[in-house]
Amino acid sequence: MEDTTESPAIHPAIAPLSYLLGTWRGQGEGGFPTINSFSYVEQLHFSHSGKPFIAYTQKTWKLNSGEPMHAESGFWRPKPDGTIEVVISQSTGLVEVQKGTYSAEEKVIKLQSELVGNASKVREITRVFKLVDEELFYEVKMATNLTSLQPHLKASLQRI
Score class of each variant (00 low, 15 high):
G117P: 04
Q112P: 01
H11L: 04
P8E: 02
E124C: 05
N64Q: 12
K121M: 11
I160A: 07
Y138C: 00
E72F: 05
W24V: 05
S103C: 07
E29L: 02
I35C: 05
Q112L: 14
V122D: 01
E114A: 15
W24D: 03
S39T: 08
K121G: 08
Q150V: 12
S120W: 13
S120Y: 11
L115F: 13
S7Y: 03
H152L: 14
Q27K: 11
K130Q: 15
L136C: 04
W61K: 03
P12D: 04
E29Q: 09
K110C: 08
I109N: 02
A9G: 00
V86I: 12
G66E: 02
Y19H: 13
L44H: 07
K51W: 12
K59M: 10
Q27W: 06
P8V: 03
Y102R: 08
V97I: 15
S148D: 15
S18R: 07
S18L: 04
L94M: 12
R77C: 13
N145A: 13
L136D: 01
K154T: 13
G100Q: 01
L94E: 07
W61G: 00
V108G: 02
V87P: 02
D3R: 15
Q27H: 11
Y102T: 10
A55T: 08
T34P: 03
K51N: 13
Q90N: 11
S37F: 09
W24R: 05
E67G: 09
P8Q: 01
S73A: 06
E135F: 06
S47W: 07
W24H: 05
H152S: 14
K130P: 05
Y102V: 09
E105V: 07
E105L: 04
G117N: 07
T83V: 03
T60C: 02
S73C: 06
S89Y: 05
S91R: 00
K51R: 13
H45Q: 13
I125D: 03
F38R: 00
I84R: 01
E124P: 00
L21S: 10
G93I: 01
G28S: 03
E6A: 13
V140T: 13
V116K: 00
G100F: 01
L131C: 08
S156D: 06
S148I: 12
T5R: 11
H48T: 06
E72A: 07
G50Q: 03
D81G: 10
L131K: 09
R127C: 07
V116M: 03
R159I: 04
T5P: 01
P33H: 09
E6S: 12
K79W: 09
A55W: 02
K107I: 08
L21K: 05
N64Y: 03
L115A: 14
E114F: 11
L157F: 00
P68C: 06
N118K: 10
D81E: 14
S148K: 15
S39Q: 10
V41I: 06
Q112M: 13
T57Y: 00
L115S: 14
V41P: 00
R25K: 14
M1S: 14
T144N: 05
G82L: 07
L63H: 05
S156L: 11
F75D: 09
A13R: 11
Y102C: 10
P68A: 06
K59D: 11
